[in-house]
Amino acid sequence: MTIWPDISFQDRIDTSEFRIHERAHITVNDDSCRGCTTRECVVACPANLFVPTSDGGILFNYENCYECGTCYLVCNKEGAITWTYPEGGFGIVFHRT
């Protein structure tokens, strides 16, 4: 039986406020990702920012990042994910957490 979620993923993300800066604070080294079979980041990122592409790479988005740090910690490829905090004043802004 398929159980449909009570809220779509996009709606879920839309409940959060993100002040988006033009600089991406996450970068992914495509070459490392092509050799990766486990793809931990794809499963673990709570914002679902990492998407595998059909040609074996990883497409990533930094705009809806909760800045938790899960991706670089679960990644087992040295240097595949470079992660810094976004520019001061930008990024996730929590309201009722």
Partner: peptide
């Protein structure tokens, strides 16, 4: 992660507590 929350919310002991609550913010 969000599927695991959804499953917890469906547990028979939890569902009556959270029923009808609209998600107003998600966080991690």
């Amino acid at each position: 992660p969000e599927d695991i929350i959804a499953e917890l919310k469906r547990h028979p002991a939890i569902a009556p507590l959270v029923e009808g609550g609209e998600v107003v913010e998600y966080s991690a």
